[in-house]
Simulated assay, not measured.
Amino acid sequence: MSAVVEPPADADLAVERPFCAWCGAARTVGDHAGCDRRLATVDPPRHCPLCARRMVVQVDPVGWTARCSRHGESAGANGFS
C-alpha cells in the first residue's frame, strides 16, 4: 500500500491535482464546486486526481479506500461517523 501525500493547505488544486477526483475532468475546465461538495460530504473519489484514471474504490461502514494503478492507494472517512 502507498502512503497518501496531501498537498500543502495553500496549494492551488489545479496545479497540485490537475484532475477532478469525482468526474475526472481537468480542474481548469468547468466548475467543480458540486464535485468538491460531494467529495467533502459523502462520496469517495472515483478518479485519480493526478492522472484521471478510474480508481478501484472499496466502501465499508467506517470509510473508504481508493486505488490508482499508477499512483497507489488513498483512504478516508469522509461522510462517515
Rank of each mutant, 00 (worst) to 15 (best):
P7W: 08
M1S: 13
T41Q: 09
A33N: 08
M55N: 03
T28H: 07
D12E: 14
H32R: 04
G34A: 15
R37K: 11
F19G: 05
V59C: 10
M55A: 04
V4A: 13
A25F: 01
E16H: 10
A26E: 15
G72P: 02
R27T: 06
T28M: 08
D31W: 05
S69I: 04
V29G: 00
M1I: 07
H32M: 03
V57K: 04
E6T: 11
A25P: 01
E16T: 13
C68F: 03
M55G: 03
S74I: 15
V62D: 13
R38M: 15
A77S: 11
P45V: 04
R46H: 12
E73C: 06
G24F: 06
D10P: 04
S81Y: 02
M55R: 02
D31S: 13
G79N: 06
A33E: 14
G24A: 06
T28Q: 11
P18A: 08
D10E: 15
C23T: 03
R17H: 15
A21Y: 02
V15E: 14
T28I: 13
A33F: 02
R27G: 07
R67W: 01
M1C: 03
F80C: 04
D31Y: 03
L39K: 01
P45F: 04
D12F: 07
H71P: 02
S81F: 05
D31T: 08
L50W: 05
A9R: 09
G72R: 02
R67F: 01
V56I: 08
P44Q: 10
S81N: 06
P8F: 07
P49V: 00
